[in-house]
Each structure stands twice: as structure tokens, then as C-alpha cells.
Design a binder for these strands. Structure first.
Lengths: 257, 257
DNA sequence: AGCGGATAAATGGTAGTACCATTACAAGAC
DNA sequence: GTCTTGTAATGGTACTACCATTTATCCGCT
């Protein structure tokens, strides 16, 4: 769809994709310096940089001054920037994101119960233990949330489908702020208990139970969400001229924050 | 995570995201000319263009020489470019993508059976009719595949969760080539029959039946896939120096195709 | 008045240069 | 050996110039 465009930047992106697909570029590889690469490809450095910036912004490559440019290993974070734009443009609420989890994660739990390997069960166990620790420490609510999400992600891995794993890891990232908020409203033991039940069902190789426990777990959170106001509620605000004037006046807050 | 970066491009992206979130920028809006905008924001046109190119490449904006730059309405295609990179980097097979559908779409079918509005049912009906037409026409295998996917997307909408709708519309895009391939192996009536059964279950408000029919439908396709060789099997190929030498020699095929 | 074509302006696209800040690396001092 | 320091490499930003396309304007003709 974008391979036959007259856009030089688009062509460069297509080229890089081809190099990646053909394994001529592999994760960890260092790309030639921008100046060299531009000369090799017979394009200006400006155009090349535009293409590189695209890949950097979505996380395909990492650029570091003085060091160079490297191809990153695949990571779900590649999708997070675009998904953020999409969520903003569409005005999607946290509730709807939570609903998506409610649709998919019970299925993934069932699948995990069918095919979890011993290492997956260990990872789930570790996530629960870490959650208990950070609960005991009490002070570290941050670590609690982190290990909460870690449990769910470990379950994604256990389900054995990288596509769902990636897609919903991104959803989790977009929800992290929210989870941090709601987890303050639920007794930690409650959450830990749910996780334990889910893990038990997986160990018992009982897909139906795992699915059901996960559904209850998420519905629990969803219920909380129903009572809370939507998160995204900023100033409706103005349009270009106003926005830009404001940013110009307080240029610092616009670009330096 | 990327809001406090010293990268000017990153800061600009964050700025645009804020403007979108605050509705200072809305779909359809025309942005100021690059030169003006650069001056207003007190950044060079090069840096601004890098940020704009990022947004254009993922489909947030559209740029047209002579005309200007406009903000696009939200579209699932925003995720397709990044997802392609991710699939390439991770070496994800069509089979795994199909599995993801198998995990999610039955659930969405069940959900659709619960909450489909009359207009949703009409859309599903239309998709089926279009499929029957293009089957009768026989010649147009392309239209058949298109309306096949259209049915599934209409079902996403009927399920009423835009997050799943977007995510899996993208998965469909990545699979379109494959679907085109497999649909040649299955009797068209078979596919149409499955779709009809699914729609019937939705009309009956029978989530379990809808879920089950959809699962059978996708397992049907998955089974085919198991016997076929993986799609992505190009030349393992070389590394940078080689790849670039080749591209340099045949610069045309590298950048102009 | 209305239509058509030529002209000018606006706009994104590309190329090129210059300079800066940071990092990496190697040569030299201790 | 270790530390310091200087140099080169690298990405980051800014600025200019020019091109191709599109849009808008104006002029002349009918």
C-alpha cells in the first residue's frame, strides 16, 4: 500500500522493512552512520533522517549521539506510540480499554491452562510472590502495580500467542496509569487472592475455571471503573491560533516539559 | 515515557499529542504551513518535518504538496505500519496471526450476539449478500475476499468495543494476502454457510452458538494453514555491506519500486 | 458577463552545508 | 597499570536554496 509512493521517506521505510524481512538487518545490528548511509543510498541526510526518525519514534531503532544507530529487538512498545495517537484521536476511554481486556484475557487464561509450560507457571508464581512482598512492604504501591501487570503479562506468554501478547501488552501500557489508580481502591489481598485462584486453575489444567476466575477478576476492576469519572477530561479548549499563541507565550511548557 | 526527552522531535510529537487530546486539533483540520509552523514553534523546519513525517507515516496526518497538511480521522491503519515492523522483526507467521483471531473473534461473536443493534445486523447481512454476489459472478475472487473480511469487521463493530475492533482490523490487514490465498482452497458456499450460521446465532441472541460457530469457522481455516508451508520464506541473505552494494548497483529496484 | 488560459503564489519534497553536544576511543602522562 | 586528555565519530539542530505540484488570481477573449 505504501511501497510505490513517490515519497522518498516512504521508499526508505520500505527499503528498511525489506532489509529486516530478508534478515540483512537483525536486532542488535548497528547501522552505518547517517552521513555514510545517506551517501550510500544516494539520498540527502535530511530525507534519511526523516525515515530514521519514524523508525526511532515507534521504537524500531535506537539512536544515540556519539554511539550510533541500532536495530532494537522486537518489542510491544513499537505499537504504543501509534496506539496512543489512536486512543487520543478516537477519544477512547479507559473503560473501553478495560472492556477489551475483559474480552480477551479470560480466553488467554483458558489457553494458558491448556498449554502453560513449567517455566510459565514459575513466572506466574514469581509475579504473585513479588506482589505479596510489595504488599508487605506497604510503602511501595508502585511495585505492587508493576507486579500486578507482570502477572497478566506472564499469563499472556503462557498462552503462547505472541500476537495477543504484544497487542495487549500495549493496552496494558496505556492503562498503567489507570491501574495505579484503581489498585488503591481495592484491598491488595483481594487482588492477590484472585491471581492465586487463576494460577491454581492453570496448574489444575482447568481452562473453564481459569477463564471464569479471570473474568471475575477483571469485572471486579471494571465495576470500580463504572463509578469513577472518565479519566480523560481536560479543558475542551481552543483551536490553532489560540493554542499556538499560548504555546508561544509559554514556549517552555510547550516543548521543554 | 517519551514526554521528557531532550529530543526535539519527540517533544514536538508530545506537543501534537497534547493538542489532539485537548481537541485543539481535530480530524479534518488543516495545519499551518510547515514554514509558518516552524517559525511559530521556534524550531527549524527540518526538525518539524521529522515530527510531521512520523505522524504521516503512521497515518495520523496526510500531507499533500501544494495543498497542505491535514489531520486524519482515527483509523485502524494508524497501527498497521508499526505492526508490520513488529511482525517482521519477530518473524511472526500467518499461523500465529490466525491463532490470535481464533482466540478473540469467537468472544467478539458472542458479544455481538448480546448487543448487536439492528444496523449491525443489516451490515452483516449486506456483507453476506455481497459475498454471494461475487461468488455468483465467480470471476471476482478479489471481491469475495473483501466481503469476507467485511463480514468479520462488521462483527467487530457489532461487538461494540472499538479497541478490539481496531486491533484486529489491523491483524486482518496483515492477513489479507493469506486470506486471499486460503479462500481459493475452500468452497465458497462453505464460507457463506458459516457466516449465515453466525449471523443466525446473533439474531437469535445466542452467544454460545455464535461463539461456537465462529470458532469452527476459524478452525476450518487454521486447519488448512497447518498443511501449507509458512508464507514468509525469503532468501536468508546477507548483511549490510552486501545488501547495500546490491541496492547501490540496482538503485532503481531499491528505492523506486 | 462569463469563460479559459496564462501567471503568480503557496506548499510540501529534497538536497546540501554548517555547527553543536555528547560519546567513544586512543594516545600520552603519571 | 591507571588516569587524563585530546581527537574523531556521531546524532541533533538550524538554515538556505531549489524543485514539483497544486491552488488561486488575474487578464484577455468571446
Amino acid at each position: 500500500m505504501e511501497s510505490s509512493q513517490p515519497n522518498l521517506t516512504g521508499s526508505l521505510l520500505a527499503l528498511f522493512k525489506r532489509l529486516i524481512a530478508e534478515k540483512a538487518l537483525r536486532p542488535g545490528d548497528r547501522l552505518p552512520a547517517e552521513r555514510d548511509l545517506a551517501e550510500t543510498l544516494q539520498v540527502s541526510r535530511s530525507s534519511l533522517r526523516q525515515a530514521l526518525k519514524v523508525m526511532e519514534s515507534i521504537g524500531v531503532i535506537s539512536q544515540q549521539v556519539g554511539s550510533g544507530t541500532r536495530l532494537n529487538p522486537a518489542a510491544a512498545s513499537i505499537l504504543s506510540e501509534p496506539l496512543e495517537f489512536l486512543i487520543l484521536l478516537d477519544g477512547i476511554s479507559s473503560r473501553e480499554l478495560m472492556e477489551a481486556r475483559l474480552i480477551v484475557e479470560p480466553q488467554l487464561a483458558a489457553r494458558a491452562a491448556t498449554r502453560a509450560r513449567p517455566e510459565d507457571e514459575r513466572a506466574l508464581e514469581r509475579a504473585i510472590e513479588r506482589m505479596e512482598e510489595s504488599d508487605a512492604a506497604a510503602a511501595d504501591a508502585d511495585a505492587f502495580v508493576t507486579s500486578d501487570l507482570e502477572f497478566h503479562r506472564a499469563l499472556f506468554r503462557a498462552a503462547g500467542n505472541r500476537v495477543c501478547e504484544m497487542l495487549f501488552t500495549v493496552v496494558h501500557q496505556s492503562l498503567e496509569e489507570l491501574v495505579r489508580f484503581t489498585s488503591a481502591l481495592v484491598p491488595p489481598e483481594h487482588t492477590i487472592d484472585f491471581h492465586r485462584q487463576i494460577l491454581a486453575a492453570i496448574r489444575d489444567r482447568d481452562p473453564e475455571a481459569a477463564e471464569q476466575r479471570m473474568r471475575e477478576h477483571l469485572e471486579d476492576v471494571c465495576a470500580l471503573l463504572g463509578r469513577e469519572p472518565a479519566t480523560r477530561a481536560r479543558t475542551p479548549a481552543d483551536r490553532w491560533s489560540d493554542a499556538l499563541r499560548r504555546l508561544n507565550g509559554a514556549a517552555g511548557s510547550g516543548l521543554e516539559s
